[in-house]
């Protein structure tokens, strides 16, 4: 096994997923299966190969620095689970 159940818990925390015990067990199996499958890539010598992050060579697409109309606040907040005074509302972050 490449990835232990503890590793899975750590990755889940990094991904901000609160997994149940059952999910952790299942994912540990699934992920290890996939990682074994990925090992096939090590057959290839890629030392001298450039990585492809994008198929078309696009770099720094600029536009003129001009103000354009943007969404009104009520539209921006239209889907917010909670909002207040034209802001997104979240549980308290800073202790008082």
């Amino acid at each position: 096994m490449i990835l232990s159940r503890e590793d899975v818990s750590q990755v889940a925390f990094l991904a901000r997923l609160e997994l149940t015990d059952e999910e952790k067990d299942k994912l540990t199996g699934h992920i290890n299966n996939l990682l074994q499958h990925f090992a096939k890539l090590q057959e290839l010598d890629t030392d001298a190969v450039e990585p492809t992050s994008h198929v078309i060579p696009v770099e720094n697409v600029f536009r003129e620095d001009k103000a354009r109309p943007s969404l009104p606040p009520q539209d921006v907040l239209a889907n917010a689970p909670e909002s207040q005074d034209d802001c997104f509302a979240v549980p308290r972050i800073v202790e008082t």
Binding site: T46, T52, V55
Partner: peptide
């Protein structure tokens, strides 16, 4: 990730 991107180059 990097390995996969490199193999992506070979495939292309």
């Amino acid at each position: 990730y990097l390995k996969a991107q490199k193999v992506r180059t070979l495939l292309r």
